[in-house]
Nucleic acid binder design. Structure first.
Lengths: 196, 196
DNA sequence: GTCTATATATGGATAGAC
DNA sequence: GTCTATCCATATATAGAC
């Protein structure tokens, strides 16, 4: 039946995102994906023409709908500074939960070709970047919106992404891994100068 | 002669760091490394027992001597704030020049096992983290030294590392890629609150 | 130290039955 | 839609000559 076709396709994508996120494109075999999806590798070729197309479907599926999440927060009926705070907390929370997305993003930054990077820029980031840039100019008119936007996302993503190594670094405390702690740190870093 | 042995070994490491940095461990073949080093793949096994050992040698070679570079800057006879500024500019400049190191680091964060992450923490970062943490407490006694240290390095590394995609993002200007511009942005972000 | 030749394994992909 | 069987390319690694 038709339901099986969609079921299998979805199952393949579900296991593939996990595997690709964990190990990267070339460290995941067709056989591995098929086994995790509960079918034989030949059957997988009924749903996708080749390995590359699975990966691209994973990227597209994983990156779509990310842009829309923050539109609400960034357009809320609050002061600019309140919206900034809200965005930082929301962004940290969402990024903290979606490790697959974070790692795929990370991998694409290293190995994505020009076409894929442009796709990500246009379809995943552009809309939010404009909104955050706008917000930053409201908060601080003379700032560089491009640099500030990158800085904010960098701070949040990097604190989350460095968790595996930070625990071996000086002054580490378990609460450093908690989304709210990270969000607070980032918000205060932006709004309070370290010198009085 | 003995010189040839060391020459070949060094040549292999030199080409291997470039290839591993560019494509990652599993996307580089022994044949590729051998060809780039000007020998046949069988000859490569005279110098290294297997592919993994080449990679580990590359990591060790590439990551050693990184820790010492900043000791001078961080120990300079200046005010804490001046040392912070000096460190940020120096760190940005060095990271900007050594793309191989940056990308290997990036890859290790994704794929490094516990042992390699611990090695990196101890041998590459620990010493500097302590120095920067100390410096930050001098500049701002009530700050969280662990979070501040990660934040500073994140900001710098991420601005450099996102260069390939930033050019497709809103408000991008070519000077955003220049080390001095990035360093200035980071220093001002830390020292000037975005709200007055 | 470097070579040629080759053993051996694994992975992507296809053919054709059910 | 999924299977079994198989082709073919590529990769790591070894054997043994020079």
């Amino acid at each position: 039946m038709d339901a099986n076709k969609e079921n299998s396709r979805q199952k393949i994508l579900d296991v593939a995102i996990q595997l690709f996120s964990k190990s990267g494109f070339s460290n995941v075999s067709i056989r591995e994906i098929a086994a995790a999806a509960g079918i034989k590798s030949a059957s997988l070729y009924y749903h996708f023409p080749n390995k590359q197309s699975i990966y691209l479907a994973v990227i597209e599926h994983s990156f779509s709908n990310k842009a829309a999440v923050f539109t609400e927060v960034l357009g809320a009926d609050k002061t600019a500074l309140e919206r900034l705070e809200l965005f930082i907390y929301k962004f940290t929370e969402i990024m903290s939960k979606d490790e697959n997305f974070r790692r795929l993003l990370h991998r694409e930054m290293l190995d994505g070709d020009e076409e894929r990077l442009k796709y990500m820029a246009d379809k995943v980031f552009k809309e939010q970047c404009i909104a955050i840039g706008q917000l930053m100019k409201e908060v601080s008119p003379e700032c560089d919106p491009h640099m500030m936007t990158i800085s904010i996302s960098s701070l949040i993503i990097h604190h989350l992404e460095t968790a595996p190594i930070r625990k071996y670094l000086p002054d580490y405390k378990p609460e450093h891994d908690q989304p709210d702690y990270i969000a607070r740190h980032v918000y205060e870093l932006l709004t309070k100068a370290i010198i009085k």
